[in-house]
Amino acid sequence: ALNRGDKVRIKRTESYWYGDVGTVASVEKSGILYPVIVRFDRVNYNGFSGSASGVNTNNFAENELELVQAAA
C-alpha cells in the first residue's frame, strides 16, 4: 500500500501528469474510488508555472500509480 510522502509515477494515460512523478499527500481509507491524493511540482494547464492558480494535486487509484521511492 502507498503511504504519505511516497514518490509515485503516474500511469493513467489520459492524465496531464502521465509519466510524471508526484508525492503522495494523503491516502483516504473510506473506500472511495480514487483514494490517493498526489501532489506535483508543476501545475496543470489551469494555471501558469509559478502561479497559485493552477491545480497541482489530483486523486488517483492505487493501480494507476507506480512506487518510485518509499517515504523515509
Results as ranks from 00 to 15, higher is better:
Glu28Phe: 08
Asp41Met: 05
Leu67Gln: 03
Thr23His: 04
Pro35Gln: 11
Ser15Ala: 01
Leu33Ile: 08
Thr23Ser: 05
Asp41Ile: 07
Val68Glu: 03
Arg39Gln: 13
Ala1Gln: 11
Val38Arg: 00
Asn46Met: 06
Arg9His: 03
Arg42Ser: 10
Gly22Met: 02
Asp6Ile: 03
Val36Phe: 08
Ser15Val: 03
Gly47Leu: 03
Val38Pro: 02
Gln69Arg: 08
Ala71Asp: 12
Leu33Tyr: 06
Ala70Arg: 13
Arg12Lys: 11
Thr13Asp: 05
Val36Gly: 00
Gly5Ile: 00
Ser26Lys: 11
Asn56Tyr: 05
Val38Ile: 05
Lys7Phe: 08
Tyr16Arg: 01
Gly47Glu: 15
Ser15Glu: 01
Asn56His: 05
Phe40Glu: 01
Gln69Met: 10
Glu14Phe: 07
Asp41Thr: 09
Val27Ser: 03
Gly54Ser: 04
Ser51Ala: 10
Val36Glu: 00
Leu2Ile: 12
Glu62Arg: 10
Val27Cys: 06
Phe60Ser: 00
Phe60His: 00
Tyr18Cys: 11
Asp6Cys: 11
Ala72Cys: 14
Gly54Phe: 04
Ala52Tyr: 07
Ser15Gly: 02
Gly22Glu: 02
Phe40Arg: 01
Asn58Lys: 12
Ala25Lys: 07
Asn56Gly: 03
Tyr18Asp: 03
Gly19Ile: 05
Lys11Gly: 04
Asp6Arg: 00
Tyr45Arg: 15
Ala52Gly: 12
Ala70Thr: 09
Phe48His: 14
Glu28Cys: 14
Ser15Thr: 01
Ser49Gln: 13
Gly50Ala: 08
Glu64Gln: 04
Val36Gln: 00
Thr13Lys: 09
Lys7Asn: 05
Asp6Phe: 01
Ile10Pro: 02
Ser49Pro: 15
Arg39Cys: 15
Pro35Thr: 10
Phe60Glu: 03
Ser30Asp: 15
Val38His: 00
Asp41Ser: 06
Ser30Met: 09
Ala71Asn: 09
Val38Asp: 01
Thr57Asp: 04
Gly19Trp: 05
Gly54Leu: 14
Lys29His: 13
Thr57Ser: 06
Pro35His: 07
Arg9Ile: 08
Phe40Val: 03
Lys29Asn: 13
Val55Pro: 04
Val36Arg: 00
Val8Ala: 02
Pro35Asp: 07
Glu14Met: 06
Arg39Asp: 06
Ile32Ser: 12
Arg39Val: 13
Glu28Tyr: 06
Ser49Ile: 13
Lys7Ser: 08
Glu62Phe: 12
Val27Thr: 04
Ala61Asp: 09
Val21Thr: 08
Ser51Thr: 13
Lys11Met: 11
Asn3Phe: 07
Phe48Thr: 15
Leu65Ile: 04
Glu28Gln: 11
Val36His: 01
Asn63Lys: 08
Ala61Leu: 07
Val27Tyr: 11
Ala61Trp: 04
